[in-house]
Design a protein around this nucleic acid. Structure first.
Lengths: 197, 197
DNA sequence: CCGCGCCAGATACCATCGGTATCCGGCGGG
DNA sequence: CCCGCCGGATACCGATGGTATCTGGCGCGG
């Protein structure tokens, strides 16, 4: 039996992962403020002490959750654009992905709500900014790569276009989380307008 | 002496206005969650009872604050575009206004933070959505008016363009409230890209 | 002109939350 | 084998939004 042959560090890593998993679900479903650490810990089968033993506080837990989410999002975009196909197919794949991602836009809602929290903690703000810059950088590189591959050019500098798309996605998601009636296609419409020519 | 010649309703209206004024300042400065009703009431020279006597709760107070802010924003845009001048002058005036408005983007931060709160209260969500639709409608009409006046056409349907600009403004403000290093000009750049031709 | 009802605002209290301090029990190195 | 160390549990605190209850002065009717 190799069953209980887990070291203490491994047990803690499992606890940490489980907490992140549960917290991710609850943060996305109910929002940051409405999710209490007590409920997260209880739902994960632990007590609040476990949370504070694995994270410095609620904010660090949310940062860990955001890291998981960001990784998923990046993977989604890469899946859409990595396939060998013409630009239109890729754009369609991306549009489908965006539909799903922005169609259930709890992610951006969490992102901006946590952004408000970060304004009161220098360290958290710095961590968030670091992540946003990485994302923006990745978007910029992707745009450049796709544009070069397709022989098109953007009407705006790549970095500007990346900022625009990220802002648009965040804003659109935030508004749509309140009013699902807002049209999702706005996003791809603007994308096309930016890569015209 | 016509001094204390104020009826009770007038007194209450004054109290209400003063609470809104103070709450607006504190909400914009510290955010929604970080601003307690106790502090607002105390700063305004009242007790928490006065707040609950004038508003159903924190959310209704914030809605009243947002109404004031929205009125100011609409006035700002109108001031930029109402003047008799050529399109470029108007766009420059608007860009200057946007620089100031997005340069100190606490407003959008409050807007999205409160949006997260609204997700847990059907009535608040409906009220917010109502206001957002009015704003989007106003933006659409303004775009149509300016476009017609200048003999230009938008590359996207007016309503779509309005959605795009509102989302972009909100998202850009939210990101900039965390990272002021993000370039403000993205907004006007996209505007120009949309009205090209 | 006066007295009483009513309502804006004050006060007291509660539940919940994030965070801290302290404690417990089992894993693992010596 | 045993004791120290640490992951996690428990108890507690201050702050906050909200509710229930009270009160004192304005203002209407007699």
């Amino acid at each position: 039996m190799t069953q209980t042959k887990v070291t203490r560090a491994e047990r803690q890593a499992q606890t940490r992962d489980r907490l992140i998993e549960v917290a991710k679900e609850m943060f996305l479903r109910d929002g940051y403020a409405a999710t209490s650490l007590d409920k997260v810990a209880l739902e994960a089968g632990f007590s609040k002490g476990a949370v504070y033993s694995n994270f410095r506080g609620k904010e660090e837990l949310c940062l860990a959750v955001l890291d998981v989410i960001h990784a998923e999002k990046v993977q989604g975009v890469l899946d859409a654009f990595t396939q060998d196909a013409d630009l239109d197919t890729k754009l369609k794949a991306f549009a489908a992905w965006a539909h799903q991602g922005l169609g259930e836009p709890r992610w951006t809602a969490l992102e901006v709500e946590f952004g408000a929290v970060a304004r009161h903690n220098e360290w958290v703000a710095a961590e968030l900014v670091k992540r946003h810059r990485e994302i923006r950088e990745a978007i910029g590189q992707l745009i450049a790569h796709v544009a070069e591959e397709s022989g098109l050019s953007t009407t705006l500098p790549v970095q500007t276009a990346a900022s625009a798309l990220l802002s648009l996605g965040v804003g659109l998601g935030a508004l749509r989380s309140l009013d699902p009636h807002v049209d999702v296609d706005v996003f791809t419409d603007v994308m096309r307008a930016l890569v015209r020519e």
